[in-house]
Amino acid sequence: MKALYSHQELDITLTRLAHQLIENHLDFSNTVIIGLQPRGVFLSDRIHQKLQFLLPDIQIPYGKLDITFYRDDFNSPGLLHQAQETQLDFSVAGKNVILIDDVLYTGRSIRAGLDALLDFGRPQHIELLVLIDRRFSREVPIQSDYIGMSVDVIDNQKVRVLWQENDGKDEVVMIAPKKIAHK
């Protein structure tokens, strides 16, 4: 396991992403934030916190979306995912939606996320924010509008974002192939 980004670097990047969102959405009057389960929600929690800190007078609608039932690898052996909670208590119809996930890799999760999102209404505009963009590994034509860091690693290496609240520390790490087999 090799550390790619430290706690401080992560925090600077999160702050930058929050400012970029404010630049484009100003007062968030028609904008909602949706984190993708399971690991995207740690990032969206942080981004939402940063935004609320920077814009204390505005309530930004924030939801969580589970994509398990929309995956395209449902029938792959040994890949039945445990569904997580979907928490969307507002309508997305006509809204600007900022979809948030931690790592953009093949793009298939985001594809499923878009399908899931459209079952809740027809948003005006959908943007994607990711912390890590694994370049050159896309399997579907999906790109991110906001990128924390770009990372180039080979296919069988895994990039994982660790979060204080779940993993005990904030860090971005690369896991070598041997370790993946162990998991």
Partner: peptide, 23 residues
Amino acid sequence: LKTAEKFKEVLQRPIKKVPTLRD
């Protein structure tokens, strides 16, 4: 039972349908 909770949430949505078993 845990999985059923998630499906119950699906059944409250505007579109009460997921594409999971389309094959």
